[in-house]
Amino acid sequence: MANYTAADIKALREQTGAGMLDVKKALDEADGDRAKATEILRVKGLKGVTKREGRTTSNGLVAARVENGVGTLVEVLCETDFVAKSEKFGELAQQVLDQAVASGAADADALLKSTLGDGRTVQDLLDEANATIGEKIEVKRVARLEGGNVVSYLHKTSPDLPAQIGVLVALEGGDEQVGRDVAMHIAAFSPTVLTRDEVDAETVENERRVAEATAKEEGKPEAALPRIVEGRVNGYFKENVLLEQPFAKDAKKTVGKVLEEAGANAQSFARFRVGS
């Protein structure tokens, strides 16, 4: 029988993030030598990287940092919540965030191709983690915002998981508090655009068609249709446009009004929710 203990299994699982059965098999093969077992896990894991490419990554975390007026937000995904809340995965996500900040990457492709200090790319780093942990791991999205006042906010949807929603908002003017309030609002109400001008014309026209067809189906008077359609299209804007949404802390005011009163202008924002 291999010479290892339950403590060795626990330590190797925490070190590599691999499953218990894989860890025990590796320790058996290495006769209890943890360094050899780690190498075995890595070698066997790398062989399975291609097989895992088609798997679904619906768990993971978001991480953010703001430095010198620049905010960076990354979404790192894995397959299970067990891995998502592991120390090893958390450390990996921080490495990814560090590199996103250092490289200035504005999208996932640029980040994956960027080179770490030891010569590896971020994709190499993920492949190695994929091998030892035994799950598909990927960087799904990256956002980078600049502004006079950039604020980040991370939200846990479950107390035993890392942050699942991350927000960056860039303001001109205002203070940290109004920035945080707006970031929290974005996390809760998930706007899709900053202003109605950013909604493409095709989407607006489709909303008009649906609103008109619905009103006719409801038997609304023909003379009232233009007003009803306009009201419903404006309802779409209020639901999706950040500056037109009722503010989370005071629904009598729009987000735009709250920013105006605080002497601030919103320049841009980014919102990631894990797996969506």
Rank of each mutant, 00 (worst) to 15 (best):
residue 2 A to E: 06
residue 4 Y to C: 08
residue 7 A to S: 12
residue 9 I to T: 14
residue 11 A to R: 06
residue 12 L to K: 02
residue 16 T to L: 03
residue 16 T to I: 06
residue 21 L to H: 05
residue 22 D to W: 00
residue 33 D to V: 10
residue 38 T to F: 08
residue 42 R to C: 00
residue 42 R to H: 06
residue 45 G to E: 03
residue 49 V to F: 01
residue 57 T to P: 10
residue 60 G to T: 13
residue 64 A to G: 05
residue 69 G to H: 04
residue 69 G to V: 04
residue 72 T to C: 09
residue 74 V to I: 15
residue 75 E to F: 01
residue 80 T to R: 04
residue 81 D to Q: 04
residue 88 K to A: 14
residue 94 Q to S: 10
residue 96 V to Y: 00
residue 97 L to Q: 03
residue 101 V to K: 07
residue 101 V to F: 05
residue 103 S to H: 04
residue 104 G to R: 04
residue 105 A to W: 00
residue 113 K to A: 12
residue 115 T to K: 12
residue 117 G to R: 04
residue 123 Q to D: 13
residue 125 L to I: 06
residue 133 I to V: 13
residue 139 V to D: 09
residue 140 K to R: 15
residue 141 R to M: 11
residue 145 L to H: 13
residue 154 L to M: 08
residue 156 K to Y: 06
residue 173 G to L: 01
residue 176 E to N: 12
residue 179 G to E: 03
residue 179 G to W: 00
residue 181 D to R: 12
residue 183 A to Q: 13
residue 187 A to Y: 04
residue 190 S to E: 14
residue 196 R to F: 00
residue 200 D to T: 02
residue 210 V to M: 10
residue 216 K to I: 11
residue 237 F to P: 06
residue 243 L to R: 02
residue 244 E to K: 15
residue 245 Q to K: 13
residue 251 A to Q: 04
residue 253 K to F: 04
residue 255 V to T: 12
residue 255 V to E: 07
residue 255 V to I: 13
residue 258 V to A: 14
residue 261 E to H: 02
residue 264 A to E: 13
residue 265 N to S: 09
residue 265 N to D: 08
residue 266 A to H: 02
residue 270 A to E: 15
residue 272 F to T: 05
residue 272 F to A: 12
residue 275 G to K: 05
residue 276 S to K: 08
